[in-house]
Nucleic acid binder design. Structure first.
Lengths: 202, 202
DNA sequence: AAAGAACTTGATTGATCGTTCAATCAAGGC
DNA sequence: GCCTTGATTGAACGATCAATCAAGTTCTTT
């Protein structure tokens, strides 16, 4: 199997699906951007949907290298890492003039009756993202209240990111993103102050 | 102009766009569900996109009657009205087995480069929703901290709703919606307690 | 070097899409 | 009875789509 052809297709499809969505991207779009011909694409992939699956697998497997590592370089504090990650999404919005933010979120709401395999991959991407946040919250240790449900808060951070991206895109105004993230920041500040008042355990 | 034909088309399109999205709904789908013929549709609307615009106008103009009034019947407390509205979205998710929640949110992320008129209508729908929440927060008066930025919190409520719907849909699990709303409820409880500690102004 | 497997090429297919339009119909005014 | 106006009908159109395939080329293996 030609791994290079496959790689080129997946990378081009990644960009196109993020820019225009899955349905608005034609196979011809992918072909013209990659200089790959239709026969080659269908030699590597059974169909267009399998290209999408490969893209979602690439996101899932590349989250550490392509998203977390760049966002976290030079940031050590676990809580700051969360907001550094949110900052990465802010950058995506700003550089695209608020036309796209989180590709997984867009695909999730675009595909109403997805193939079970596709739905599972979308969920796996969310799960990986949530786990990354959860690990930050756990790494914060006594900097956050002991009774705090880390998993729940991690899901909530994803919720706020996706909702904030959606509004910034709709209004074409980064202010909507910023104000929502500021609300989340206030909430974290409260949690941190609460933890400071707690007795330090042995 | 035949207002009945127009009404039938808009109502059918409303359902279809919510179920399958805009792009996955063909004009033929709308025609077959309404028993209207293609010539009639194109006599009333210049094109498919104008049907979408009419649907978004219907949502915008019907929010009071079709969303707020049913959700708020028998609920007087302003803060409880917010969670009653969120409960309406929960019901939509449950009755659709977590396949669709907020039609505006779905359309927002489905249409990547929307016509400016369409984008403005999507924004107008979000704006109406946010204003409804904002009015609740203002109606709460001294039940919430005086310094609280009502507008910001209203935007945040929309953010949490959309993010929670997105996760519930992706995982096909209402638990993700419930936990996120519970997080928001905790935050409101904190605000209410904070307001109780405030001195009552003259 | 021979044979076969893997890959590429690009024209082509058939289905589906949004849209058009000439023909038809119904109703009211004159 | 005739004309006008607005609405309806449904066949047809051109474009675009994902997918196919037979022929050709390159790589691998022995």
């Amino acid at each position: 199997m030609n791994a290079d052809t496959r790689r080129k297709i997946v990378m081009a499809a990644m960009d196109l699906f993020a820019e225009k969505g899955f349905q608005s991207t034609s196979v011809a779009d992918i072909l013209s951007r990659t200089q790959v011909h239709s026969g080659s694409l269908y030699h590597v992939f059974p169909g267009k949907q399998d290209v999408l699956a490969a893209v979602l697998e690439a996101y899932r497997d590349g989250i550490e290298e392509w998203l977390l590592a760049p966002a976290w370089s030079g940031v050590d504090d676990p809580v700051e890492r969360i907001f550094a990650l949110l900052g990465a999404y802010r950058t995506m919005l700003v550089t695209s003039e608020c036309t796209y933010g989180c590709p997984i979120g867009s695909l999730t709401l675009e595909l109403h009756e997805p193939d079970p395999a596709i739905r599972a991959l979308l969920a796996a991407n969310f799960e990986n993202w949530t786990l990354a946040i959860q690990r930050c919250l756990e790494a914060a240790g006594q900097g956050l209240p002991a009774a705090l449900d880390r998993r729940r808060l991690a899901e909530f951070v994803l919720t706020v990111m996706e909702g904030a991206v959606m509004q910034a895109r709709t209004y074409r105004d980064i202010g909507y993103f910023d104000r929502n993230i500021a609300m989340l920041r206030d909430q974290f500040d409260l949690l941190i102050r609460e933890a400071e008042r707690e007795p330090v355990s042995a």
